[in-house]
């Protein structure tokens, strides 16, 4: 490739920044070890670009997840200088002169290097029945189910979640108790609870108001601060606490037959 030497020259001529990457290989390392890599510091390079440079040029054994590079897929969440961030939306220049410390997302078991185990999170997501429940009242497959802008607005914000798990990593309650259902799963439940087409709120109540549900949240709000998509899971949880409390009072006061 003829462009290659020119590109290399530009890299050596420009500034660089140190990526301090957490490396962990089960069987070899007892615990994660930080390792420094010097990468070009370019204004338009994100932390993910830096990691890709490490993988392509410096050390092909580095393991991490990424896909879209544009804040849509939710794969590249990592701890950057102590904060949960999408590495594709976090730029190296923000941390100049460095080093940029890149660690796996906190709060999750590490499989290798920067790759964490997302199975517990996927289980939590699935537990809130995250689809439209129609209780036998399915409309014909070719029917449109029209909604007013108000009905759409009621849940649209909570549908923006990309499952990047930054909110779990930021949540101090989840850090203490891994059984906590957590911000994204509760926000996702609200996304369907507040949808005018959905009939599954009663089934979700049994999960959301049970042990590990909304009552574990103490409204610290770090989840909403960490969210790269403006979903406000903390707001969703607070909103549902009132709903759940009212439902509990109703079940407590009303005789069984009237529920």
């Amino acid at each position: 490739m003829s462009a290659e030497p020119a590109m290399r020259a530009a890299e050596t001529a420009g500034e660089s920044i140190v990526l301090r990457v957490s490396r962990y290989l089960p069987g070899r390392d007892a615990e994660p070890v930080p390792r420094d890599y010097e990468v070009p510091l370019r204004e338009e390079w994100s932390v993910l670009d830096g990691l890709n440079h490490v993988k392509d040029v410096l050390d092909g054994s580095l393991a991490y997840r990424w896909s879209c590079r544009m804040g849509i897929c939710g794969s590249c969440g990592m701890t950057v200088n102590g904060e949960p961030r999408l590495t594709c939306g976090t730029f190296l220049s923000e941390f100049a002169p460095g080093p940029v410390v890149v660690e796996p997302l906190r709060g999750f078991a590490v499989i290798r290097d920067l790759v964490v185990d997302i199975e517990p999170f996927l289980g939590k997501l699935a537990s809130v029945t995250p689809w439209l429940v129609r209780n036998g009242a399915e409309p014909p497959p070719d029917a449109e189910f029209a909604q007013t802008p108000e009905q759409l607005g009621a849940y649209k914000q909570f549908s923006m979640c990309i499952n990047c798990m930054l909110c779990y990593s930021a949540c101090p309650v989840y850090a203490l108790d891994e059984d906590f259902l957590g911000p994204a799963a509760i926000a996702l439940a609200q996304r369907y609870n507040l949808d005018s087409r959905d009939m599954g709120a009663a089934a979700r109540f049994d999960v959301l108001a049970a042990a590990g549900g909304v009552w574990d949240c103490t409204y610290v709000g770090e989840c909403s601060a960490a969210c790269p998509k403006g979903v406000d899971p903390a707001g969703a949880i607070q909103q549902y606490k009132l709903t759940a409390a009212m439902e509990t009072v109703r079940r407590f006061l009303l005789p069984k037959g009237a529920r």
Binding site: W215, K241, A245
Partner: peptide, 24 residues
């Protein structure tokens, strides 16, 4: 590197009522 499990607070069926008092 498995996550360490830690015991969280015990849950009670009165939690919603305690939260309503807190909220109120």
């Amino acid at each position: 590197m498995a996550r360490e499990g830690r015991a969280g607070p015990r849950r009670r069926p009165v939690e919603p009522f305690l939260w309503l008092l807190f909220s109120g």
